[in-house]
Every structure is written in structure tokens, then in C-alpha cells.
Amino acid sequence: MNEKGEQLEFSDFSRILYSYIGLGDEHPKFVLELLSLVYLGDDGFFCNQNNPFLKMNTSTLNGYFRGSKKISEKNAVFIKSNFDSTEFIDKIDSLSVDLKTNLANELGVEDTDIKALPEKCADVFLQIISDIASGKKQEKVLLNTNSGQKDLEQKYGLSLLQECNSLCPLPECSKPLYVKKEEDKQPYFQIIQINPQKPYDRIYNLLAVCPECAAKLNMQKTEHDILRLCEIKRRMQKNEEVSEFAAEEKIEQDITALIEKITNADGSELSELNYSPVELKKKFLPLEHFLEDEIKPRVVKYFNFINGLLKQKVEKENFNEAKFRKSVKHIYENLEAEKIEKTQIFEAISGRFHNMSKTSYIASQILASYFVQSCEIFREAAQQ
């Protein structure tokens, strides 16, 4: 529990920390690395044969990060019994003062002295794990106010609509969760709790449904209704995970193929741009010239070459270039939402490409530079 008296779950804590120490990592990998930072043992977290987390699949680890799956009491006991905050504290302490201040605000420990923040973070982490290990349950909180509904819509509305493809997920309904006004579609839905005995403000316990179904379920929700809603939620999450995995696997293959081509490119295959990269210049303010100066030579030397690679993939493979570019842009937008500096975003995307390809980091930076010029990464500076 933080100093505001709000209960943080493992998923809340890990998603907050991801913005500061996990950039470039896949979510499942970050969960393992986060746990390894608080692990005590001479053999190391990744070597202990009794470590239950190393046997878990990507879907389960991703579920821990997103909050759709819960760490068991038994596994929480394993973490608690091997807890050592030394490396974790060092990791937090390595952040800049500004980042530490932002982290304190997000965790709800604003009154904590910045020098003491790393230890406080470790205390919060241990408390979360201890609560799980002891089987402690959160108090029931009812969602029955307009302000609560609005808060949830702002926080989770888009994700919940994407989860059900903007259709009421109850099989007997399936109405669109929007209304058409002239040429626009306006959202028309309500968020309901699945199980009133569980925390109301966690995405795993929420569904977006049409107002008519919401009224019926809020008026009277039987045990059978709860079980049915749980199954609907489970099925949608499973479909979403399968879809995300397939999309992630495809983009990894495409990124890897491009980076391998860049790494093995012969000098004779490269033709430099015969003009100054205009789009690139629009992305940076005068004070951001260091990053611009770093990216520009790569764009000049490799932009035409990478354009040609993409054209070949369209002609020779079943390659959807528009979808591929959209996936890259989605990676950028997720990082942009974390409100971090451009240099950190660029390094995170380059690191993500490098993790996907497991080859040249320089080639990963070259590819990231290409997407800056072709507008998938960074917006025009005047629009920010």
C-alpha cells in the first residue's frame, strides 16, 4: 500500500517501473528481470532450478504484467523468501533526479525524500509480495458513481473497446458500442464489474458493454452471471494474446530480415540521398540537435537502400507494408505515451529492434533512423 492508502498490485507496480527501467524489453522478459533484481542466491535467479517463474510461458508472464493473471501465494512465498533489494535499490538509484521525482509521483510516495526513494520502492515491492504470500484480500469497493465511471473510461475505455472489437461481448447482444453522428462514430458504452467482490478498478475485472446490458447486470447479478462474464473475459483475453503473439512474431521476423540485410549490405548497394532530409528536420527543436545530428548521416546513407528492401518484400513476399509501418508506429506511440525524452525513445526502439533480431545494434539504430525520416517515429516538433 502506498502513502495515499491506495492498494498497488504487482501488475500496477511492474507497469509503472517498466516506464523507467524496462524500455526496450518485451513485457514477459521485463517481469523476469524485475524479479531477478530482488533475488537472493549465490546461483542467481536465472540458474536456480527450483525457480517457478523460469518454467512459465510467455502468456502467463504477460498476464502478470497486464493484471489478467495473478501470482499464486506459493510463488509469492518463493519471492519473499529469496528477497534481497540490493540490486533493485541500485537500479532505481541510477535514475536521474527528474525521473525519480516522476516515479515517486506515480507510486504515490511524493513526500518521500528523493535519496530515500530507492529503499521506499523496495519496501512497496516487498509489501505487495507479502500481501500475496499471506493471502491478503483487498476490501470490496463498489462502482456506482458517475465520477467512477468516467475515471474508468479515461483509464481503460480504449483498451476495453479494443478487447471486444467495439461490440457488446454478451453473445445474446453484440450491439455496436458506438453511435453514428453524421460521419463520426461516438462511443456509447458502460464499464461494468465482473465480480463485485474483487477490486473495481482493475482491467481484469472490467468489461465494456452496451448501456442496456449494463443496466440489467447492475440491477441483479447472479453467481451464474459472474461465472459467465469471467468466461467471456477469459476468452477475449486469450484471443487478444494469440493475436498479439502472432503480430509480434511477424514483425520480429520482418525486422530481423531487414537488419540482417543492413548488416550485410555491400557499399556498392548504397546510394546516398542527394538532398537534405526535410522530414527529419521537422522532428527536432534546436535544443535537440544532438539526436538529429546522430540520425541524419544514417538517413542520408541508408534511406534509399531500406526503401528498396521494403519494395522487394512487397513484390516477392506476402508483405503488408502499411500494416508493418503501423506496427512500428504503435511501438513509438506506446513509448511516447510514457512522456519520456526523444533520446530515450530512440534508444528504446533501437534496443527493441536489437532484442528482436539478436544481431547488430548499429544496424538496429540505422533502421530506427529510417523510420524517423519516414514518419513512423516522432511527430513534427511544432505539433508537440
Rank of each mutant, 00 (worst) to 15 (best):
N274H: 07
E292V: 02
D293E: 15
F303Y: 13
E288M: 10
R325Q: 13
P297V: 04
V278T: 12
N320A: 04
Y302P: 02
K313C: 00
K283R: 15
H289W: 09
E288Y: 04
E321I: 11
K301N: 06
E321C: 06
L280H: 05
Y275R: 08
R325G: 03
E315C: 08
E288D: 11
I306C: 08
K281N: 10
K311Q: 12
K316S: 12
K281H: 07
Q312D: 14
K311V: 02
Y275C: 07
V314S: 07
V314P: 04
F284Q: 10
F284S: 11
N304H: 09
S276F: 08
L285M: 10
K281T: 12
S276E: 11
E321H: 06
E294Q: 13
K311L: 10
P297W: 08
V300W: 01
N274L: 09
L310S: 08
E317G: 01
V300I: 15
L309F: 00
N274V: 07
V300A: 01
K282R: 13
K282V: 01
G308F: 00
L287A: 13
P286R: 07
V300E: 10
E321A: 05
V300L: 07
K281Q: 11
K283P: 10
N318Q: 14
V299E: 03
K311C: 03
V300N: 05
F324G: 10
I295V: 14
F303W: 05
R325L: 02
F290D: 15
E279G: 02
F324R: 09
E315Q: 15
K323C: 04
L309G: 06
F319D: 06
V300Y: 00
N318A: 11
F303A: 07
F324D: 08
L310P: 03
N320S: 11
I295A: 06
E321V: 12
I306E: 06
Q312E: 15
I295D: 04
L285K: 15
G308H: 11
E279C: 03
F305I: 01
N307H: 04
N304M: 03
L280K: 05
K316V: 08
K313G: 01
V278G: 03
E315H: 12
E279A: 09
G308Q: 12
R325I: 00
G308R: 13
N304D: 05
E279T: 08
K283N: 08
K311E: 15
L291T: 12
E288Q: 15
F319C: 03
P297A: 04
G308S: 14
G308C: 02
G308T: 05
L291A: 12
V278Q: 13
K311W: 01
G308I: 00
V314M: 10
P277F: 00
K282Q: 10
E321D: 12
Y275W: 01
